[in-house]
């Protein structure tokens, strides 16, 4: 799986994976949650999404994957318009709380859930389960009950259950929340080698520094900054104006 997507990544390097133009979203008529979002993400890019609580990170994710219908504007994935409510295996979302995602009595069934819905043959489903498990390094968990696993293991199962659909774009919502140090380190190693186009929303700025080559700062539903992680996160005035802090590792450099 890794080799396959890596070679295609080289070809697609310049093709836009996500194109968002003039996007707005409002839960209620009075207040916009997202306002005038314009964004282009190339295939293979790894983008961090930061911002204080309530900045609109999760809402942005839900509109990108077609769960919420934008109030105005449009979103294209690989130049195809997102149609809200229509299943698109090209895009996957890893939820903040793995419990929201895991619902089967066996890890195996949970990972097979997506591929089965795609209408794949039993052999193909089995193959994808094995590949996704080995890719996330949790092959030994195949017969366990997801609800009995530790937080770190659940997180990897949730990721594997999305990977099994072979999506080209994966959105991670706070993947390192509630992980212990070792599990977090394993997640970082995994994300560094992940070949897909990824957008990671997180408060764990140190992790984003290690994983992402670009970061987007969101405040009250608007994009405030977009650029190289080190540059944005070391800008004390910018960070503090948007309810964030300069991460520890960057303060030491000065």
């Amino acid at each position: 799986m890794k080799e396959l997507t890596r070679s295609s990544r080289l070809i697609k390097l310049q093709t836009p994976a996500v194109t968002i133009s003039n996007l707005g979203f409002a839960y209620t008529e009075s207040k916009n949650t997202l306002t005038d979002i314009n964004l282009q993400i190339s295939a293979g890019e790894s983008v961090g999404l930061i911002g204080a609580n309530g900045a609109g990170k999760t809402t942005l994710f839900l509109t990108i994957c077609g769960i919420l219908t934008p109030t105005y504007g449009e979103i294209k994935l690989f130049e195809k318009l997102v149609q809200p409510g229509i299943f698109n295996p090209d895009i996957g979302l890893v939820f903040q709380n793995p419990d929201d995602q895991l619902l089967c009595p066996r890890v195996r069934d949970d990972i097979a859930f997506g591929p089965e819905n795609m209408g794949l043959s039993a052999e193909e489903v089995d193959k994808r389960v094995c590949v996704a498990l080995s890719f996330t390094g949790i092959s030994h968990l195949i017969d366990r009950v997801p609800h009995h696993l530790s937080g770190g293991e659940k997180c990897m199962v949730a990721i594997a259950s999305v990977l099994a659909m072979l999506p080209q774009i994966i959105l991670y919502d706070e993947p390192s929340a509630n992980l212990d140090l070792r599990a977090r380190r394993r997640l970082i190693k995994f994300l560094q080698t992940a070949p897909e186009t990824t957008i990671i929303s997180s408060h764990d700025l140190e992790m984003l520094l290690e994983v992402c080559d670009r970061v987007i700062l969101l405040n009250q539903g608007r994009i405030v900054a977009d650029g190289i992680p080190q540059n944005i996160m070391s800008d004390r005035i910018l960070m503090e104006a948007n309810g964030l802090e300069v991460p520890h590792s960057l303060t030491h450099h000065h």
Partner: peptide, 13 residues
């Protein structure tokens, strides 16, 4: 609601 979203995103109809 969140769990229903999660299964829909993995193709449940």
């Amino acid at each position: 609601t969140t769990m229903q979203r999660a299964i829909r995103l993995r193709g449940f109809r």
